[in-house]
Write a protein that binds this DNA or RNA. Structure first.
Lengths: 192, 192
DNA sequence: TAAAAAAGAATGAACGTTCATAAATTAGAT
DNA sequence: ATCTAATTTATGAACGTTCATTCTTTTTTA
């Protein structure tokens, strides 16, 4: 079935084109016409794979979020201590954001756009379940403060997005030293 | 000169209309036609006050950022200790964001839009100079970690935006207890 | 009555989406 | 294998809107 493969390739090309375009002009800057041109298909062809622009963006969101989570938990090992597990996840996330600039920036943009509905966003969050479970465990063990997961996320994960943003604008270097300081700040903010 | 006052009122109405519209539909959702309608003027009239939509949004950005900074430093007193000063600023900011939901959400959106250029953004940042000065002083006194202001901001200020976002979506309450925990996390992340 | 301010209608461009057709592929019959 | 008919897949043009902005005319002010 070479035909099936061609379809998959086209779908992938469309997602990739969207990712690229959103990256240099925002979601509104990624018009269906431009997406089609970059993916080398007709605008009409997009609608053979996606119901609408919103569907296209949502599917891309879930795809990218999934790959982000996969990277975050790539070497996840339930045998290890809470501290080690959190540190691994944190640096995996940082590494992903550093090596997948477009994907990271896209996910950031998705946090604010009305293009992605609450349901899809919820679906995306579920990829991070192991992290939330870890926080629960860490609280039980009195390693983490007894605060809501929203606070945990806001202070230990979310700041990475800001730093990435600054780095991409050429305002703040993210070398190894800065990364270590950043992790320390994240850890200090949630550790008991 | 009642005429001058009328002009000022019209300008204010246009800024206010933009703020409202951006709040329920993003910057792209705030079309010049809608802004004009809400401000009860003709679309053409907008261009008597602003060169373009980008100019309108930029001026609104600077206006709001300025009022945010004014609130943040309202009871600022150089005689007080670094700790007290930081705490005051932090809670002032939190209070502003809680009582000026539209303004806070608008500023959040401005962080990511390409509509506001780097120069304007820089201009907006300068309103926060007293905070940056405080950080320098705090570092000299070994109260704060010796890390870049970007890290300081990312971990002690930026998380508020996330929590506001969650609160506005009805996902995370921001009561007094949560606020105190949040400040503690901010403080722990940057204190030496 | 002259000048300034504001209006509404109009402009061309761009948007997401659809439609009627054309190309490509498949399936069946020879 | 080869031809043909049916079916899928893809297309470019076109649709109706909406956009930011401008032009000409009308209203208001001095």
């Amino acid at each position: 079935m070479a035909q099936l493969q061609k379809s998959i390739d086209k779908r992938t090309a469309l997602l990739k084109a969207t990712l690229t375009l959103v990256n240099n002009g925002g979601i509104q800057g990624a018009s269906m016409a431009k997406i089609a041109k970059i993916a080398a298909v007709s605008p009409a062809t997009i609608y053979l794979f996606f119901q609408s622009k919103q569907d296209l963006v949502s599917q891309l969101y879930l795809t990218v979020k999934s790959s982000f989570a996969e990277a975050a938990f790539s070497d996840y090992n339930l045998q290890e201590s809470v501290e080690v597990r959190f540190k691994k996840i944190w640096f995996n996330m940082a590494h992903y954001k550093l090596t997948h600039r477009e994907e990271a920036s896209f996910l950031s943009q998705c946090d604010n756009t009305p293009m992605i509905d609450e349901l899809t966003r919820q679906e995306g969050l579920e990829f991070l379940t192991p992290l939330f479970d870890l926080w629960v465990k860490g609280k039980e063990d009195c390693i983490f403060k007894d605060i809501s997961p929203y606070l945990m996320y806001a202070y230990s994960i979310y700041p990475m997005a800001f730093l990435m943003n600054m780095k991409n604008r050429g305002l703040c270097p993210l070398d190894e030293k800065t990364l270590q300081e950043s992790f320390q700040a994240a850890w200090d903010s949630i550790k008991v």
